[in-house]
């Protein structure tokens, strides 16, 4: 588990890998060296278009290309993709259910030093509220590669939530993933930690530490937030009786909310939501910010122990 790679890098490399499909077109908004669509650009410059610093235009241009049969990957930072360009995504991509994959990099607090204006903490909430939008938030490079390939094969809009920071590679290279199917990464019977994105790694560390204290914690990776894998969540609720969600996102409207919607309806159990508590971020080193906002294995462990008292 010593190897590290940012999910944005895995995204860019995967685009270059699948780029032999001549139907794929990649758009960027002056950030190709950061979103890493430059890997695709180097191999297929004729199908990589820089739209400039005009994200709203880029999303609707993507819709026009998709209406003519193209599989379009439109990339920019998450704060612009889901925030600034929201109306284009909603009306030009979501409403006509066009085949556009939104590669949204630099999501979450781990953008770091750029600060709150660039730390997108509401995108899961915004994107999952659009009817028909698939929302994917992979935890590592291996799952990113697999899910980007599947997204390219499916017809319809997909939001891919990707990170800037180098994060540990969690899965063996040959692991199978399926859009809409969660992964039970570790079994356990006392409590379930459900994580998305880069929070899977601290959730796994928290589970290891809980084991040492005699608590058997199950860990589930919800890499697809919409459509969510209700079965794996209901099973966990029934079998472990307590759920802690872990996300690098506002606790309002994100993974925790999505899991709670399933739990409340099917099998109510005590829950705790670990995430950013309805506040903007700030500048700082990613590691320091994760500590400041409680996005750590230590905090997950602490919240788990508090929750176990409510069982």
């Amino acid at each position: 588990m010593s190897e590290k790679m940012a999910t944005r890098v895995a995204y860019g490399k995967t685009l270059a890998e699948i780029g032999q499909d001549e139907n794929i077109v990649v758009l960027d908004a002056d950030l190709s060296k950061s979103t890493r669509t430059d890997f695709f650009k180097d191999k297929y410059p004729e199908r990589h278009f820089n739209i400039g610093i005009a994200e709203g235009n880029m999303m609707a241009v993507a819709a026009g290309l998709a209406s003519c049969g193209k599989t379009v990957f439109a990339s920019t930072f998450a704060v612009f993709a889901a925030g600034r360009a929201y109306d284009s995504v909603r009306n030009s991509i979501g409403y006509p259910h066009l085949n556009v994959k939104i590669g949204a990099t630099h999501a979450g607090i781990t953008v770091g030093e750029d600060g709150a204006s660039h730390q997108m903490l509401e995108d899961i909430a915004l994107m999952r509220a659009i009817p028909g939008m698939t929302v994917i938030s992979p935890s590592d490079a291996v799952s990113t590669t697999a899910l980007v390939k599947q997204a390219a094969q499916m017809n319809g809009p997909v939001y891919l939530r990707l990170g800037r920071l180098d994060v540990p590679v969690i899965y063996p290279t040959d692991t199978q993933f399926q859009i809409g199917k969660g992964v039970q990464v570790k079994d356990g019977k006392d409590i379930t930690l459900i994580a998305t994105g880069m929070m899977l790694d601290p959730a796994l560390k928290a589970a290891e530490n809980l084991e040492k204290e005699g608590v058997s914690a199950r860990v589930i990776d919800i890499h697809t937030i919409k459509p969510i894998d209700a079965d794996i969540i209901i099973k966990a609720a029934k079998e472990t009786g307590a759920i802690v969600t872990c996300e690098e996102h506002n606790i309002l409207g994100g993974l925790g909310s999505a899991v709670a919607e399933v739990v409340v309806k099917n099998c109510p159990v005590p829950m705790e939501l670990v995430g950013v508590k309805d506040t903007f971020g700030k500048s700082g080193k990613p590691a320091d910010l994760l500590v400041k906002y409680g996005l750590t294995a230590e905090n997950i462990m602490e919240k788990s122990k508090e929750l176990l008292k409510k069982k």
Binding site: V25, N57, A60, V61, A66, S67, C68, D87, S92, P96
Partner: peptide, 30 residues
């Protein structure tokens, strides 16, 4: 565009249709 035969793009939020038309023209060139 999904419901009405002959409609080539769903529009309504002003300023977006011309962007979509740009995308269509790019696809034609490609």
């Amino acid at each position: 565009m999904d419901k009405v035969p002959g409609v080539d793009m769903s529009t309504g939020s002003l300023g977006q249709g011309i962007s979509a038309a740009v995308g269509m023209a790019m696809a034609g060139k490609l």
